[in-house]
Design a protein around this nucleic acid. Structure first.
Lengths: 327, 327
DNA sequence: CCCCCTTGTGAGAGCGCTCTCAGCCAGCAT
DNA sequence: ATGCTGGCTGAGAGCGCTCTCACAAGGGGG
């Protein structure tokens, strides 16, 4: 009834525990006929090693945690970033024969839970996917002696390894595209100033404008659709003559599109719009949204690679401008 | 350097291992002054129990797996179902002091991985969130002796406990709303016939129409936006005089809206449209989409409750029609 | 006074596994 | 014959914890 143990398998195969262990773990120093006999016993009994016992002696868990340090509502919104990261991490972990454990640490209670879980030996390392660069969780885990890799440059000045996407460069390329297509009064709807992505994309916008000697026109949003609508409305009030807007997220761009339509502006005729993220809805927007795509799957792969190979340097991945019809 | 053990804590507090264990596990039979001393030692050393050792002896893992038996791309699309389930399960598990481990089992390789992981004693039970009612995973796990609860009625005739949402009733209410507002030729874009949600929503549509003696007009989609577009296009060809359509998912409804616009039909003037799911984009559609909302968080809670309290009967949750402008 | 209970503590077994180390048996050189 | 490999296998310790059980100490009741 209960799960068979090594002992049982050994008895059935007529060998010792040690030999079964060797076979199960793929040791090469086992005679062929014994290996076959053991494998048959394993199958007949449906033996699966007890991971707790194994971990206890090896001090390894053969699994890694992927922690989303955000409220679930954000993680599973239309934002394709998380999905891509999960896919990438899974792929790489698979290749290394490690199990991925997803954890949500949205609340402070969640932080504590994650800390307990990861320090109790359940995992060999942690990938923290946090949008807030000042998140205390990565540092806290590192202090506990757990290998940690961050998705997104940490703002805390910690020296933890991280994988980030070139937000500055992505924003620059978007604004440059606007400039090159003859736009002259280019506004931006920036992301929240406490998130790395918000900060860096604004920096990119500023960089590109500075190079061209143009004035910046800024509204602040929080990456949501509603804040994009409001930001755009305010921008139109501030500077009715603007002819382009770079939104730091597609959701905000979608909101901006709506505000523009309401204000009677035509896109891209009167105002060009570029977003950021390339969400699934972007190609279906009216007009289809020009946006900056990020290599999210690649990001996941790099994250896992960094965790599995300690000591390697942090990585910054390039973006790609996807030109559709809105700009 | 290495993590402190019970032994270390015991030495520091000047008591035995057993006593420390008692304190850590909240036994009441420990003298107050000793309890305090032990707790201080625990804190000073930053002691966290080794979960592997604990599981080994207790045969419990104090965590449950939430398995998504779908490709990640589906799980993290705009579909709010999964997000809600995760939230609900997390909340309930939290209350029971259990850890939730999310796992993706999209591929057959993933199935195998999940099976190994869950049978190796990592978790006390599994919630399988699968959209495909004929998914073999739940039954396979159950055969291994692991407690399993399914999200969505299994199609395999297995007697596993499940939590489902009243898809039939939801579809019925949508179609009845159409009927009541005077629509006479009501078509549907159904979901895939191999998914419970697809089957049941079609049944609901048929039920409501049968009651009113009207003819059914059916196209088959796969819940995606593109299939909604195609389904609608085909429907308009089949029956140009239709004046309403019930799409079995919001994404398909969004695609249908697009097809309708392209065909010069006005919504809801010429054709009324109702979707299903109430995705985040639904209120922002043009026109805002009338749809059927599901109590997804509640579903998650019930799922966890069922897993934690074996023997309780399966649950079917009601839906809610959200009337916006498209119908 | 002893006996019995109650209350609190420690000793020790053992969960299922890995891994070191010793041992065994060829086979071959000495 | 003896010694020495080298290739395989088994014995046994021990990972960090829980939990049973024995036991010590103290306090009534007979």
């Amino acid at each position: 009834m209960s799960r068979p143990t090594l002992e049982k398998v050994a008895a059935r195969a007529g060998v010792s525990r040690a030999t079964v262990s060797r076979v199960v773990n793929g040791s090469t120093t086992v005679a062929e006929h014994i290996r076959v006999a053991v494998q048959r016993a394993v199958e007949e009994l449906g033996y699966v090693p007890n991971q707790a016992a194994r971990s206890l002696v090896t001090q390894r868990a053969d699994s890694i945690a992927l922690v989303f340090s955000e409220p679930p509502v954000r993680v599973f919104s239309d934002d394709p970033t998380f999905a891509g990261i999960i896919r990438g991490v899974s792929a790489e972990a698979d290749a290394a024969d490690k199990q991925v454990v997803l954890m949500l640490a949205g609340s402070s209670r969640g932080h504590e839970r994650v800390e307990r879980y990861t320090t109790s030996g359940h995992v060999d390392g942690v990938i923290v996917a946090s949008m807030h660069g000042a998140d205390p969780l990565p540092a806290a885990l590192a202090r506990r002696g757990i290998p940690v890799v961050c998705s997104g440059r940490p703002l805390t000045g910690s020296s933890l390894p991280y994988v980030d996407i070139d937000n500055v460069g992505g924003a620059e390329s978007a604004v440059r595209h606007l400039l090159e297509s003859g736009r002259r009064r280019i506004a931006t709807i920036a992301g929240p100033p406490d998130m790395v992505a918000g900060i860096d994309r604004l920096t990119g916008y500023r960089n590109a404008l500075r190079d061209s000697g143009r004035r910046s026109i800024i509204a602040i949003g929080d990456f949501t659709r509603d804040s994009g609508f409001e930001g755009m409305t305010q921008l139109l009030e501030d500077d009715p003559g603007l002819d382009a807007v770079f939104a730091a997220s597609d959701m905000m761009a979608l909101g901006a599109l709506q505000a523009l339509r309401k204000a009677g502006r035509r896109v891209p005729g009167d105002v060009a719009v570029i977003g950021y993220d390339d969400v699934p809805a972007a190609p279906y927007a009216d007009p289809p949204l020009t946006t900056v795509r990020q290599p999210t799957t690649r990001m996941g792969r790099e994250l896992a690679r960094l965790l599995l190979n300690p000591g390697e340097p942090s990585v910054i991945l390039p973006t790609e401008l996807v030109v559709r019809e809105s700009a």
